[in-house]
Design a protein around this nucleic acid. Structure first.
Lengths: 176, 176
DNA sequence: CATAATTTTTAACTTGGGTTAATGCCTAAA
DNA sequence: TTTAGGCATTAACCCAAGTTAAAAATTATG
């Protein structure tokens, strides 16, 4: 797997302690990060102090801010470690340029991006078509282990609801 | 632009009349479609007859079901023409295979997919962080011309609310 | 172990959007 | 110009989730 090999060869290992941020909203951060170990949370911080969780990142996942990479606006979200974490950090541009004369590498990037697109479409579908309760049940079915890794608080913010709301949904669901 | 050239060379022109479907939910359709002219609507049809609009497609846009291309589940959404339309139809697999030994083509696909990812992330952001009213205002700001092309009914379903809800939001907003 | 801090639950109250149905508006066809 | 069908608005009522605050449960820490 050329992409994995590339990330290993060119990546610089960085470690963070639980609670540390990899980057903040507004930062210009044009790196890709591969999670070697630990759990991370990518989240949008609203002006009113509310937070919304874009995604949780686990071992093997790749994360970076497309916004920061493609525009001069900086990151739209924050990336924070929920555990002590070890990441591989690679400048996006280096990978991008390398792919320009490496056919195999560029294929693997295409495959990665297609998978990424499908995931994003699925999340779009869930927000567009499912109620908070249905999204909760779906998450429970698809990634039950997530509930052991992060607080219910954070699950709620991932589902786009408040912790109070999630507590009520749980109660309603189990009484069925 | 090699991708455009490819789509033109290998694409087959197909035309549909207003109201015709290009494909339905559940169909196995592994084509990409480039919109030459006309307006189309990609939508999820819920079991209870409710519909939710995934996206509107305009001249120059490219659409296809990643789900159908990548899995055996078939399309998750419907694609229907809101006008008489002319499309270019290309088997995804032909493009994919061609990219396997064409570096320039594969770069352009990467660039396309990155842009696509950014768009999807933006829509995710809007559902996660904005209220229906805020999503309406955002749409009004970003693509005001859309309101001339499709009914308010369809705009509502794109925003994830009912036509009644959108009517109320409009009224509330203009009285501010 | 005790206590502080955080997370989760519960309660009371508010609210925005859903639902249903009636009404008014357009536009297209006859 | 009428009439029929679809679209948008309005009204009345309902309900799920938000908000605020307090209590209970869990987890961390000295």
């Amino acid at each position: 797997m050329k992409l994995k090999a590339f990330l290993n060869d060119y990546g610089r290992r960085v470690t963070y302690e639980r609670g540390e941020h990899v980057f903040h909203q507004g930062d210009l951060d044009c790196f890709l990060y591969v999670i070697e170990c630990g759990v991370l949370k990518a989240y949008y911080g609203a002006s009113d102090g509310k937070e919304r969780v874009k995604s949780f990142l686990l071992r093997g996942d790749i994360i970076g801010s497309l916004k920061s990479i493609l525009t001069t606006d900086g990151c739209r979200f924050n990336l924070v470690c929920l555990d002590d974490c070890s990441l591989l950090k690679i400048e996006f541009d280096v990978l991008y340029k390398k792919s320009r004369d490496d056919l195999e590498l560029s294929h693997e990037i295409i495959d990665f991006l297609i998978e990424f697109g499908l995931k994003k479409e699925t999340r779009e579908y869930e927000f567009l078509c499912l109620s908070p309760e249905e999204r909760y049940l779906e998450l429970l079915k698809k990634t039950p282990h997530l509930f052991d890794l992060v607080s219910q608080n954070e699950i709620a913010h991932y589902l786009g609801i408040t912790p109070v709301g999630l507590s009520r949904i749980k109660k309603r669901v189990q009484s069925k």
